[in-house]
Structures are given as structure tokens and as C-alpha cells.
Design a protein around this nucleic acid. Sequence first.
DNA 1: CTGAAAGCGCTAACAA
DNA 2: TTGTTAGCGCTTTCAG
Lengths: 340, 340
Amino acid sequence: MANPTLRDVAEAAGVHAATASRALNPETRGLVNAETARRVMRAAESLGYVPNPIARSLKTARSRTIGMVLPDLMNPLFPPIVRGVQDVLREAGYSGLIVNTDNDPGVERSQVGSLLSWHVEGLIVATALLEHPLLEELHKQKVKMVLVNRRPEKVELPTVTPDDAGGVEMAVRHLAGLGHRRILHLAGPQTTSTGVIRARAFSHAVRDLGLETDPALVERCEYWSEDEGARALTAVLDRGTEFTAVVAGNDLIALGCYDVFATRGLRCPDDISVVGFNDMPFLDKLRPPLTTVSAPHHQIGVEACRMLLEAISEKARPARSVLLPVSLVARGSTAAPTSR
Amino acid sequence: MANPTLRDVAEAAGVHAATASRALNPETRGLVNAETARRVMRAAESLGYVPNPIARSLKTARSRTIGMVLPDLMNPLFPPIVRGVQDVLREAGYSGLIVNTDNDPGVERSQVGSLLSWHVEGLIVATALLEHPLLEELHKQKVKMVLVNRRPEKVELPTVTPDDAGGVEMAVRHLAGLGHRRILHLAGPQTTSTGVIRARAFSHAVRDLGLETDPALVERCEYWSEDEGARALTAVLDRGTEFTAVVAGNDLIALGCYDVFATRGLRCPDDISVVGFNDMPFLDKLRPPLTTVSAPHHQIGVEACRMLLEAISEKARPARSVLLPVSLVARGSTAAPTSR
DNA sequence: CTGAAAGCGCTAACAA
DNA sequence: TTGTTAGCGCTTTCAG
């Protein structure tokens, strides 16, 4: 038989389909005579019965499916998060649908729509902007969501993020400890909470540690990308601002700095030290190995998914926001400033 | 209204549900009066009707869904392939489910089972081993599949791979051109077609170019991993085999070599040149930048997905195997051997 | 504890 | 061209 159905199993066990259904579902098995249940399960086993989740979804309006909304899976930040989510989903018997928005609100809207049409039971969203009308709408529609890495300003949604502020403070402290006084921050997009929080933490840290607080020592990137990092650093260099170290908004921006160093004949860490953020793979093999703040991305995925599943099963109202601890990984891109 | 159904639309348009269905589906719209169709579509629009793909799937036994079977999404090889697949899926109105097998046949079997239970219409498989009973079974069960990157030996399935043999030949030719005579191959797992084909191509190239063909100049890795690359190179070094360059089975194995260089105080490319395979991201920023064979991974995903969709729609029997061209990217990890 | 019956939302014969 | 009818495979009242 191609695909045995519940009725086939029921027939084989000599019971009604409804009984078979009850026997096969652990949640309702108690309603059924233990002996009957065993008989049904054996029949299912021997026929190689696989329940049809589509039919079940149609009936129950629960798809055992969630959606993940990413800017772009190819950003090395996301695979570990996705993996963390998938690992939890698998244990729970859920599946996950992944969409990429390429940071285009139109694409995001249509992709989320398609996710919703599949009756996903919840969303894990990595694309949050500070101003994010779509998320507000979805929240109003009671779509269950957990946000990772970033959060919007207006709407209160459960969030799992690395401790951005703590990480930046570690980075600045590390550089200050090495003797740097004029540190440049290449901030990420100020449309994202991550960009804003890291920039704010930078200012605080610089002030608290008594370092120089020249506003020229902060430059904003429009995107979290190598290209933008390169552009921003070039701009700062071109206007003649002096500094001996860079705290980059993330690793990609730091990598953009590496490109500029190569072009301009600057040596790292001799001329300029750099710290990144995220600790994406293989940073230890760069020239020089990049000092960075390591964030537990797999763990972020795991936590976020657990929270979402809890919210779905109503077991618990998920915590409003979880901050996962980060750590500084000191490598070769930071050293004491060369005295001139 | 929470979720308008087809009947709501039909009512609003003053027609029967069946008519509404026909009007809304582009494939059957021709069967319906153009005016009626327009009325239905307007009603759908104004109610914000979204078809329920679950109900449709149940009826049609076509889920508009495919599955992707990967060893591990966190391997940097896969995100671009996945992205290529997703891009094609999206245009076609399909969704993709991703599973990771961690190279465990048991996990693979159960994960594929779960995919099949969702009635995926086809599979894109990146885990193929030369001996792969599961794939044979699935093939017998007429499951539509396209294999990426690798292929099994026994079963004839459509495949999209980079031109592994051509790539290795380029690598060897490049090194020979620089003056290397004794080149080591750190081969990938010989349970994978990729490992075997690259190893075979290496032998051919070495012979054709008149280089030294010492069997001690090939060492096999059990996995495509940094650790295995390091282990293999260490083993060769320890037995005192002489060589001036390495053709690594892939980039990860090449990165393992970098670790050994660091441990042993060897300089690359001065003491030993290295070539990788795949051109994963950020290789240009390594110390030294890794010379490698660049494979069009996004393109592989795109082609594979197109072939799968064709097979599904029976439009065409997909080509048995597609070889995508590769190119050598010469960077700093290769140079002329130092004369002793 | 088990069976009967209805229906989730949609589509595909078949009839009109 | 449109409506009627039935049913995809499952779960869930409601009776028995």
C-alpha cells in the first residue's frame, strides 16, 4: 500500500478510525482501553503508518510549523542561530520555514504573508528595525513572535539578544587597558536596536573610563556590511581625525577596515587596533586574527525557539527579554598603541 | 473576519465556492466568465482573502513544498546553495523545508521521513555518499530528487556539481607553473564522490604534468573538516614525506593546514604552498589569503532547484548531471618553492 | 470506553 | 459557464 491512512490502521486493528486516532495520539491515549491502544499501535507499526500532518493541520488549525524571518541566510551570523532553532524544533516535532527579506520591507511583508498562509504557529524574527510597522501589525493580530538579535522600539515583544552593551564595554575596556585613549566607533545602522545600543554603550564606556570623547570619534554605517565598514573608515581617515583603535559595530564592519588597511598601507595592530563583534567563524585565521566579542548564536536560536514554543503552548508567557552573556576574545588585531 | 475562506469570497461575489476557486486559480480561470472572474477577484481582494495551502494540499496531494537535506547548515558551503534554492522556490510559489543530518544515517532517515510526511514534492540532497542505501530506496519509491555537490555510485539521479576534476587540475597546474614538483593531496572522504573524483583528478593531473607521483603524496581525511585536515597534514609531516605544496580536498581541510603551520612554525607560502577548494567567504582575509578553486554555489542551488521543479511538473526529464564551471582564485597562499 | 457523524477549506468530477 | 456533490485524512463533539 502506498500510504496507509488512519482508516487502514483502524480496519487492521478492528476498530473505528476515531478510536485509532485516540490510541495513536499520546495526549488522548488515556481515553482508550490499554489493550485496544496496544493493538492499534501494533497495526500502525506493521502497516508503516505515518500520520498525515496536512490533514491534521486542516482539522486542528495547528500546523506544527513556525517561520523564521531573516535578512539573508548568507550572512554568517544566521546559520548558527537557525541551527539552534532547528535543533529545538526537531525535538518538539515541529518544522521551520525560512524566508529571506534582503532588508526590503516589501519582500518582508509578502514573505511573512506566505508564512502566515501556511498557518505557522509563530515567528522568529531577526529583521527587527526600531521602527517596524509590520511587527506592530502582526503583534496586534496576535501573531506569536520572538525576536532575535534586535528589537523594535514601540512594541513589547519577547526578545533574545546578546548582551550588546556589555560586549561593547568589554571591547572598550580591553583597548583602554592596552593604553588607547582615542578610540573610533564605527557604529552599525541606527535604525536597528543593535546599532543604537552598541553606540550608546560605546559612549558610556568611553566616558566612564575617562577616554577622549570627541564626537568625531563616532561614524555611522548604513548597513552591517564590509563595504559600509570600509566606506566609513575611509571617511574618517580622510577627514583627518586621529585615533589608534576601532570598535567596529560588528565583524563585517571590522573586515571592511581590513580592506582599507590594505589599500592605505596601514598596519594592524601596529598603526590601528580593531575589535569586532559576533565572533563569526574563522576570524582566528584572518591577517591579523580579529579580536572580537563572542556572542552565543546557537544558544540564541535555542532560547528563542524555546520561548516561542512556550508561548505557543501557552505554558508560559515568555520572558520579555533575555540577554545572553558575551565574552571578549582577544586576538592579534589589538595591541598597545605605538608611541609616536 | 479573522480568516476569510473561499466560501466567504464566493458569497461576497454571489457565486458558488467552486466558481470562486476556478476564478482565483490562474490555471482554471479560463473556464470562467471573464466578468465573473473579475468580480470574484475583487471580492477576494477586498476581503483580504488568502488561500489556505493546507486545505489545497490535502485535496490535491501536492504541497508546493520541497525538502532540502544537508549535513549541517553551519558549514559555510551550504548557505549560498540554500539561498539559490530559496530564490527559485520563491518565484515558483514553493516553500522549502531544511533538515540537517549531521552525517548520521539514522538522523537522515528520520528527517527524510518527516519531510516525506509533509508530502514534499521533491528533495534536494547534499548528503549523498557513494554507497547510499536510503537514496536507492527513495529512488525506487519514485521520490523526485536532485543531488547537489555529490552523487552516489549505484543510482542514476540528476546531479548538479561543480567541475571537481577541472578544478583540481587547475590547482595542480597552477602549482606546477610556480615550479612545484612534489605536491601533496589531502583528499576528502573516499565515501563521497567529491572526495574520490578530486583525488582521481589529482593523480591524473600530476601524471599528465610529469610531476612526481609518490603514493606517499596522498593522504586521506575522514571528514571534510579543519580537524581532519590538521590531523592528516601532521601525519604526513611526521612520517617525513617531502613536499613543497598541498592541494587540499576543500577549504576547511586547507584551514586545518594553517593550524599545523602555526603549531610547527612553518611559513606559508614560503615553506609550503596551499590551495583549497570552494572559495568560501572571507578567504581573502586569511593569513595568508588562501588560493582556492571557486565554485558557483549559489548557481548550484539555482540549477538544482530548477531541475527539481521541472521534474515535478513533468515538463522535462532533468539532465542526468550538470557540471558547473569553476575558476582558480590565486591568492597569497601559493608561491614558487624556495630553493634549498 | 467506543462508534457515528460532522467538518476543517479546498478542488475536481459530473451535471445542468 | 456555473452549480452540485463528494471527499482528501484527520480530529472532535456527541451519543451510546
